[in-house]
Amino acid sequence: MTRDALARSRDFDRRGAAWYMDRAVTLFVFVGGISAILFIVGIFAFIAREGFGFVFTEFDAGEFFGSIAWRPTSMIERTYGALALIVGTASITGLAMVVSIPFSLAAAVFIGEFARGRTRETLKVLVELLAAIPSVVWGFIGLSIMNPLIIDTFGVPIGLNVLNAGVILGLMAAPIMTTIAEDALKAVPDGYREAAEALGATRWQVIRKVVIPAARNGLVAAVLLGVGRGFGETMVVLMASGHAINLPDSVFDSVRALTATIAAELGETAVGSEHYQALFTLGILLFAVTFAINLTADVIVRGIRRKGR
């Protein structure tokens, strides 16, 4: 024996450099982990800090949610009716979902259940690349390509409207929804498929009666996250919706969205002014709604996981 056992057992009490290093790293990565919580709390705290001045003074829930008069810079009477902005956001997001839900679910089923081998890999890479296109480029496409296209096709005077922003937003949200939906389908154990196929069911029968019901929660979560994504998108609705305060009668009307209002007006307000605080109040609303959407999606997904166990 080269080393005396007694001497070595003294090491049991000695915490060397490795021990302290391990402790330090543990603390460091713990702080890193906690930081995500700190940031999300920080986001709320800082927008609330700037916006609460308005919420507790000028804010009138009846006007905010019931009036379409968003006149923060009026000389005569400033009003902060956000109804038109809410409706604008809702109409664009709604149309975007009409466009993207069927297509992205179809694409998810096709890629996840029908496509095989190289086709499947290629489609997955393409979808991933589509998801990477920056929103400002999508907005530019709405402005410079969709706009004239809509004017020519439908003979309307202006092509920057609900239709334009909705379709663009739909195309933009679709790849993300496709990816999440495909993940949900993939989470269905192969045993389910094999059992049904062994009974002589065709692939489509298996998908319709076994896979989709089993993946339902994940698919709902995918749709929800798509809604959240559309709801919070800024550059597309700023550039392609026409940015007019208006309750739309048809998809050819221009509208204005909550996000776009902040983006367009924040640069022109004085820090701490009523208008500035009102814009942060819109931010609080956006934060609250997306937080609720994400929370719901998370609860739904967690639901399937628990059932799966």
């Binding site: 700037e50 902040i262 983006a263 924040l266 814009l279 956006l286 997306t290 937080f291």
Partner: peptide, 18 residues
């Protein structure tokens, strides 16, 4: 999940405030 889901313009407001 929420950091990824909060609208980019809200991140902008946070950036300004913080």
């Amino acid at each position: 999940i929420n950091l990824a889901g909060v609208p980019s313009i809200v991140h902008a407001l946070f950036g300004v405030g913080a």
